[in-house]
Design a protein around this nucleic acid. Structure first.
Lengths: 251, 251
DNA sequence: TCACAAACAATCAATGTCAATCATTTATAA
DNA sequence: TTATAAATGATTGACATTGATTGTTTGTGA
């Protein structure tokens, strides 16, 4: 079995199970403990997993961030509808920060013919934006494997050179007390900075994100518009609406 | 069996299976290990696949297969060879500026396993670099339609935040008196800045670029290594060599 | 606190994989 | 046809990966 195959198996085990022991991984892959350990070291180096005594877990509590490709196929239609709603808030001449991620990329087709100016930290976003003939600026930063997002100090500093009428962010967790959270602290800093530079703030989130808490805190709910589809209980909607603006897109 | 046939088989195996070992490919094609390895080297050069220890895997970005394989090769192959020569100058631990453009992108497969740090203004470059697991930084700037290059004041300022051991540029015109030129003044500024921040300077250019003059001046020939294939007359070679270092890759 | 077991990193020998080289076969041109 | 070039397969030494073994560290429960 090839190294890369084995590592893929380890990752998929983790996606199912949150925490997996070294022994389990040995059994599934028919590899020795040494080999598994080496794989774990490798995977940790590339920030796919976090090692714990006895095994490994994903960087995030719940599960690995799916790669962009996986994400984009799963709930694409739902995301597209959420994105369309977000686009309806965008006005002619706006300067916009568009966060990296699979939700926000769905917004781009709706920006066509709007004569807006977009700044983004998502590499695939840049490509798509210019294909649509939209005036696009890319921030600087370190390119993160997997999501192809630009992060780090340079990214944060780079965002500070702009002011935005609106920013549109994706998010992993939305929680009444914990606020907005995301798995990667580096990405969290970038999001924070973008929020700070923006007049109006929109967060795209499908209902599965509600009640979730990820590792790194981004902001609390006050002052952001959350756009989602209807999949929340009336009760949930009500409690959240007390803290922030909630836009619900009918499916 | 024809080389093309065999390579097609390898590609279709990969499309089915994502990761394939050399042995499997040998069995299916009845070719020797050596031949398969040569095929893999070839396919990787042209960015159809990514080699891994023991076999090969598909680059996530799926490219068009049949026509490309038959046709494109001449220019691309030439570019790839020039890029390979450029890569031979790159050492372990180097920090590199990689200019946007179709010549420089060919360099990326040769950077694999070199533990270098790359800064680039090419959006497709960023995507490919992170797929190869190379530490990648993207500068900021305005995204230019067509070439997907980042340009403008922000780009220039952004480059100034780095120092490079080596920079690798593409270029449109190389002329004895006019020096290096390119059509877009915005891109010219970016190239100039990159040159200024670099210890060693490499310019990739196929022979058709010699004698050409484009609109915007980038730099004169002194102090840059020009890498090209042999298509120049001995006379041309000699006169240019008086002004700068000329590396000629045999076809 | 201690003792014990599990988990661990470091090392080593065996095996597998690799690029480079060369001789042979196969295609192509003269 | 012969001469030349290209593709192929086998071989080689260098290097990478692997599993076993070692001694050390870490966590657990008495």
């Amino acid at each position: 079995m090839l190294t890369i195959e084995r590592q893929e198996i380890i990752l998929s085990l983790l996606r199912e199970k949150d925490v997996v022991t070294v022994k389990e991984m040995c059994e599934v892959t028919n590899a020795s403990e040494s080999t598994i350990r080496r794989d774990l070291t490798e995977l940790e180096k590339h920030q796919y997993i976090k090692r714990v005594h006895g095994g490994a877990s994903l960087l995030k509590k719940k599960r690995e961030e799916p790669t962009l490709l996986e994400k984009s196929t799963i709930n694409q239609q739902e995301k597209s509808m959420i994105a369309q709603k977000a686009a309806s808030f965008i006005e002619e001449g706006d300067s916009i920060y568009l966060d990296a991620g699979s939700s926000t990329i769905e917004l781009i087709p709706f920006l066509k013919d709007k004569s807006v100016m977009v700044v983004t930290n998502g590499i695939p976003h840049v490509q798509l934006l210019i294909e649509y003939g939209i005036e696009t600026y890319c921030i600087s930063g370190k390119a993160k494997r997997g999501t192809a997002a630009l992060v780090g100090t340079k990214a944060v500093d780079s965002i500070k050179e702009y002011r935005f009428d609106k920013c549109i962010l994706g998010i992993n967790g939305i929680h009444l007390e914990q606020g907005l959270t995301t798995p990667d602290p580096e990405e969290a800093s970038v999001k924070q900075t973008a929020l700070a530079q923006s007049q109006a703030r929109y967060v795209l989130a499908d209902p599965s994100k509600f009640g979730e808490v990820s590792f790194a805190n981004v902001a609390d709910l006050a002052g952001v518009h959350i756009i989602t589809t209807n999949g929340l209980s009336d009760e949930q909607q009500e409690t959240i609406s007390k803290q922030t603006t909630l836009e619900v897109v009918p499916l």
